[in-house]
Each structure stands twice: as structure tokens, then as C-alpha cells.
Design a protein around this nucleic acid. Structure first.
Lengths: 206, 206
DNA sequence: TCACTTGTGTCAGGCTCTGACAGAAGCGGC
DNA sequence: GCCGCTTCTGTCAGAGCCTGACACAAGTGA
């Protein structure tokens, strides 16, 4: 676990971590291109690995499952949203806090990895295959488990956990619909814009 | 397709269909027992098939995927909800119509296949394995595609499709949370009761 | 009884994913 | 620069899910 000798060179990452991230990014890039071209299920892991110059076994050391290339790190987005949510004022309506937190996610994401089209491409691949859709929903379920306690803490005691779960799941539904619509849209509609509209549609009295 | 010679003997099912349904039910029963006992992932298709006295190949002729034993026919529930929804008065608030339609589903389900504990057992198995959860959410996505047009038809033209999608997905989220909570509850709380509470929590102004 | 359809087992094969092992490559201290 | 240590990688083997193809048995209707 590199706990004994970790001489982080000023940045937060060791050389090996940098290298590892670079390889991951390269695999993602190549795989996404293949998926967009031929379809997710028509591309085998072996083909991705060959295109990336490695064995299939090595591919699986970077991504536990083929779907993870498109899905990305499951916990990452959830942690981000959770942190933003935790920083919002306690007396703000929860629904607003959730909207703001998810908006922070969608406006932060493109800055991280290249241009916006990359995210759109991934999203289009995502909605095109059932197994990807399923895995993505599973990820949202993980996010829900991370966000629910924070939401529950803001609700009146009466049935807080149960109601928090519903609110969080609905927020995720808004998020999902907004991003799906965004991916399929050809006009220049922003993801943030769609997200706002989706949250406005529901808006429970909380 | 049995379109040429189908002499339905007064009931809606041919003999072969009855036999087929019986085999399906038997496989489900055996598999559910094994899953509850050892866990979904610890039971192989080959083991289920052996316990049911058939080859693995035959098992797959009844269920395309191992998960389908627990999930059931994806379209079935969606069709039921859709039909109830279609029968509701057009001027009823959509959210109420949706609640009523889903309540009809949960109160009809137990009558169909044995006692109530059977459904609860399936639900408990369902939430215990990630791949099952994912497949179930995928099923809900199919339901959403079936319900959205009906909901959109009742909404003002402005952005009807987009907003309908969000409302339907949220209703499904309520449904999911209610059933999950019901499965984990040890007291005698009814699924209908939880469903009503979950829909009341959200209740958008529609 | 004679087709015809349907159900089943067996065989073969593809695909995803994992464990185990050995060798290559990088990193630390000396 | 050399030597241990960790990490990365490829190869091999195998489990498990799922599908297509074929042959054979069992029903179904004329």
C-alpha cells in the first residue's frame, strides 16, 4: 500500500500513481473510440487491450469490468456531490442544496478531462447499451447511499431516513434524465440548463 | 409462432403454455430457495438446473439470464401499470394516477403467485446482489419508456416529454424505495402503506 | 399412422473475469 | 553503479455465463 515509503514530490501523487492514471486515461480514450464506432457489445476486451498495446489481463488490472471504462470510478462523483452538499447552509431547502451540488458536478466534470465532447461521447455510448445503463444505475445507487444520511439530517425526525431516500433517489432521477437528454440533444443545450429544468419540474416542498 | 393452429381450449392458454409456465414456476421456486440459502452469486446455473432436473442449456431456454429468475418478465409489471394508468380519468392529477396504478400492482402481485412471503423473499434476494439490483433498475427503465407517453399526454405542451420522464422516473424511485424498505422490514408494514407514504413525500404539483 | 412442431441433451465455442506464477521494470538505500 | 524491494506485466489455466447447431424424443393435429 506504499505506506512505509511514500515521498510525495510536492504534488499529491507519486510517480507510479501518475503513470497509472495516464494508462487509465489512454485505455479510456481508445476504448471509447472503439465503442462509438462499433458499439459497446461488438468490441471485446481483447480488442481494446490489443489497441492499447497490452494483454487482456492487464486491462482488467486497470478496470475490473469492461463497463467501468465508460462508467469511471463509481465513488468519485458521489464523493464530490456529497462534499458540496455538506458545505451548503443547513437552513437551505434540501432540494436546492441537491440541485446546486449536482450542478457543481456537471460544471466541474468537463474541466477535468479534456473538452466537453468527450463527456458527451461517453454519455452517448452509455445510453446505447443495456449493461452499461444498468451499471450506471448501480453507481447512482452507491451515490444515494452516500447522500442519504446528509439529507436525512436536515429533515424532521419523523421518518427522516425513509423520506431522505426518496428525495435523493428522485434527485438522481432528475440528474439521469437531464444528462440523458443532454447526450441525445444536437443543439447546444447545456447540461446545467437541463439539470435546472429537471429539478424545477419536481421540487418537493422540503 | 403458433399463429396457424392455436386451438385455445376455452382458457387463454394452450397446454404447452401451461406446461411451460409450470416449469418456469418450479425453476423459480427452487432457485429462490438456493439463492436465499447460499447467496445469489454462490449458486451457479448448473446447480439450479441440476436441482430442477434439467441441463443448464434448458434452464437458459426458460430464462435468458440467471438474474431473470429473480427479476421475472421485465415487461409484465410495466404493462399492468400502464393499463391501470390508461384507465384513470384524464383530469385526475397525474401523480395520483401513478400512485394508484403502482398500488394496484403491489396489491395484485401477491394474489398471483402464492403467498406474500414469496414476494418478500424474492425482494430480499434482489437487494442482496448488485447485479440483480442493476438488472431490476434496467427493468424499471423499460417501464419508464412504457409510462412516459401516457404521462406526457396529460401535461401542458411545454416540455411535456422531458417533464413526463422526470415524473415517471421519480414515481419509479418511490416504488423502488417503498419495496426495498418493505423487504427489509420485519414488522408487518404493508407494501401499499409504504408506497402511499413514499408518494406523499414527493408529490409534485401536477 | 404420418408429418409437424416443440422440448431436450450434448457438444462446441465465445466472452468476461480471476487466481497463480514467473519474469521485467522501476525505486529505494548503500 | 549495485542490490533488494515493490510494482507491473504476460502467460497460463480455469470458472462461469450464455449461444448456436445438431440430433433425438415427445407431444400434437390431420
Amino acid at each position: 500500500m506504499s505506506s512505509t515509503t511514500s515521498s510525495r514530490p510536492s504534488s499529491g501523487q507519486s510517480l507510479r500513481e501518475i503513470s497509472r492514471d495516464a494508462v487509465r486515461a489512454r485505455i479510456t480514450e481508445i476504448a471509447l473510440e472503439l465503442f462509438a464506432e462499433r458499439g459497446f457489445e461488438q468490441v471485446t476486451v481483447e480488442q481494446i487491450a490489443a489497441a492499447a498495446g497490452m494483454s487482456a489481463r492487464t486491462f482488467h488490472r486497470y478496470f475490473p469490468a469492461k463497463e467501468d471504462v465508460v462508467i469511471g470510478d463509481p465513488a468519485r462523483g458521489g464523493e464530490f456531490v456529497r462534499d458540496v452538499l455538506a458545505g451548503r447552509p443547513q437552513d437551505e431547502p434540501v432540494w436546492d442544496s441537491l440541485r446546486i451540488a449536482f450542478e457543481a458536478l456537471v460544471s466541474q466534470a468537463p474541466r477535468r478531462g479534456g473538452d466537453d465532447d468527450r463527456g458527451k461521447l461517453a454519455m452517448r455510448v452509455l445510453v446505447s447499451a443495456a449493461s452499461l445503463r444498468a451499471r450506471s444505475l448501480e453507481k447512482h445507487l452507491l451515490w444515494a447511499r452516500m447522500l442519504t444520511p446528509l439529507v436525512a439530517a436536515r429533515l424532521p425526525n419523523d421518518d427522516a431516513a425513509f423520506r431522505a431516500e426518496i428525495i435523493v433517489q428522485s434527485a438522481l432521477a432528475c440528474f439521469d434524465v437531464a444528462l440523458t437528454t443532454w447526450a441525445n440533444a444536437d443543439d447546444g443545450t447545456t447540461a446545467s440548463e437541463l439539470l435546472e429544468r429537471s429539478f424545477a419540474t419536481l421540487r418537493p416542498q422540503v
